[in-house]
Design a protein around this nucleic acid. Structure first.
Lengths: 221, 221
DNA sequence: CTGGATCCATGATGATACTG
DNA sequence: CAGTATCATCATGGATCCAG
């Protein structure tokens, strides 16, 4: 088992792919980008990966300095998190995400699992690519059953975090991962907000700005 | 042989990786980013790939709309080039290249082939990441034995093209791929220009700007 | 329940040789 | 020049089991 098979090119991209080019590796990084996760969190959000494979990938990512393993004394769980080098893979994930949005037909397939984090990362990359630029600090919160995510515009780009921004949300979206996924997969011309399984709250002007960002408009009244 | 094995995630990045995540695929794209190449050009610049694998990757990239195959009537050669979707993978290649420069120890290994295109793409990404911003239109040309490459600053980022920019070069670098690779792999504090196997020409002020961009300075006189 | 390990079948890749 | 053919090896998935 030598996942480090070299391409033998003097090429920085080839070097990167020698470290994170195997199947699943970048998906593990993607799922750690918003913060530490346990083995079983990863196994769940990665869907089809087998425990063997996940163990192997985590060990390898740890060996090359992308992932750190954190076991607190007295605690049974093991938390995995990204090192600084791992966090620096964010732009790689975003570039692949943007290309996928543009060229890889992002319709929801019937047999797919839909995770909130993945859908919202797509939302973030899409907003960045569309140059959606509200006032600095604008904050939109998605409430899904059991979890919440926040997108905040920092004046230059959008930032995705896990959890609820509490009081300072301009818009709160209540929906489910599949409902929001279907909305994103709809061409802008066919989008309606609020829509099936999507409920908005917040000041009307903020809701209108939100809807406009996604190519929709609010119904009158 | 099903290179489209789905991850079954509703995730744009996973979609992308289903199309270009297999070994060699992104390296083929990388080598086509500067223009069409023949099968044997690719086999050469990709070094270790076997003909079977290269054929398979090209067919697959063609099937998913990233590569086009072009055979002129009466000609034996087949030219491969990127579609627009393929060209859009440029940011993915650049993001991986930048990560590799920062985190994947880009020293030249003894058994590696060093291709001018790969080294200069690293040079381009490095200049972009360092925010090296000369006047708009600034043009630096590298002359290697048998081939030439041009880097030009367009006011926002650096552009790499194959071939000589002819008369409007501000600086011309005469060197070899390994010599320039060793220069790039040297920490900025240890770089010297001109250096071993690296010869500069152009107005002295332009040469000084060039050297400064790479963290070096010119010797007095 | 968390975090694995093991076994086996199959898919993906590499090495080498050869062809129109 | 642009591939095929054949065979060996490596990587991955599926299923099952196990220790703390």
């Amino acid at each position: 088992m030598d996942p480090n098979r070299s391409y033998r090119h003097f090429c920085a991209m080839a070097r990167s792919l020698e470290l994170i080019g195997e199947r699943w590796s970048l998906l593990v990084v993607r799922d750690l980008l918003l913060g530490p996760r346990r083995f079983s969190d990863l196994a769940d959000s990665l869907g089809g990966i087998t425990p063997t494979r996940l163990t192997e990938r985590l060990r390898h990512l740890q060996a090359v300095g992308i992932v750190e393993r954190d076991r607190r004394p007295g605690r049974r769980e093991v938390w995995y998190r990204l090192t600084d080098a791992g966090q620096d893979l964010g732009p790689v994930v975003d570039a692949l995400t943007l290309w996928g949005i543009r060229h890889a037909r992002p319709a929801v397939r019937p047999d797919e699992t839909v995770r909130a984090q993945h859908v919202l990362n797509g939302t973030k990359v899409w907003l960045d690519s569309r140059r959606i630029r509200p006032r600095k600090g604008a904050t939109w919160v998605w409430h899904f059953p059991g979890e919440a995510y926040t997108l905040r515009y920092d004046g230059a780009s959008w930032r995705l975090t896990r959890g609820d921004a509490q009081a300072d949300a301009d818009v709160v979206v209540r929906t489910t991962p599949p409902a929001w996924a279907r909305f994103l997969a709809t061409p802008t011309s066919g989008r309606r907000l609020p829509g099936t399984g999507i409920h908005l709250s917040g000041m009307r002007s903020a809701q209108a700005e939100f809807a406009a960002a996604f190519g929709s408009s609010l119904p009158p009244g």
